[in-house]
Computed example of a mutant assay.
Amino acid sequence: MRSVDLTSVTWRKSSYSNQDGGQCVEVSDDFAAVVPVRDSKYPHGPVLAFGASGWASFVSALRDGALDA
């Protein structure tokens, strides 16, 4: 597996995260092929990297309500 340097990545909080400190997911749009995702409460913790097309499908499913409980 190839490692990616994330030291200068620009993170943005997901619009699905609430503003009072819970469920804080951050993503980076700095890469074309992968989307790094992290928990903003643990900025030095682990990062998950998803393929860009898979991430786009996931976000579309969220927007469409396909993942509602």
Score class of each variant (00 low, 15 high):
R12M: 08
L48G: 06
V59Q: 13
S8P: 05
V27N: 11
D29G: 02
G65F: 13
W11P: 04
D64W: 10
G21L: 00
S8E: 15
G51K: 03
L62D: 11
S3I: 09
A49E: 06
E26D: 09
D29P: 05
P46T: 03
G21M: 02
S28M: 04
G54Q: 13
S8A: 14
V35I: 14
D29T: 09
R12Q: 15
K13I: 08
W11G: 04
S17A: 02
M1N: 08
R38D: 11
C24A: 13
S28C: 01
W11A: 07
K13N: 07
K41T: 14
M1G: 15
A33V: 00
G45I: 03
A61Y: 04
D39N: 08
S3C: 04
S15P: 15
Q19F: 07
A66H: 04
A61F: 11
G22C: 00
V9Q: 01
R38I: 08
V35T: 14
L62A: 00
R63Q: 15
T10H: 05
Q23C: 02
S3W: 00
S57N: 07
R63I: 14
D20I: 01
G54A: 09
V47T: 15
D30S: 10
L62S: 11
G51W: 01
C24Q: 09
S40K: 04
L67W: 03
S15F: 02
V59S: 10
F50Q: 07
W55S: 12
Y42E: 11
S14D: 06
V34F: 03
D20L: 08
V4S: 03
W11L: 05
P43S: 11
S8V: 08
Q23S: 11
D39E: 14
V27Y: 14
T7S: 15
V27A: 13
K41V: 10
A69S: 15
T10Y: 07
V34G: 03
S15E: 09
A56I: 07
A61E: 13
S28N: 09
A52V: 13
S60V: 12
N18D: 11
S17E: 11
S3L: 13
S57L: 01
S28P: 12
P36L: 00
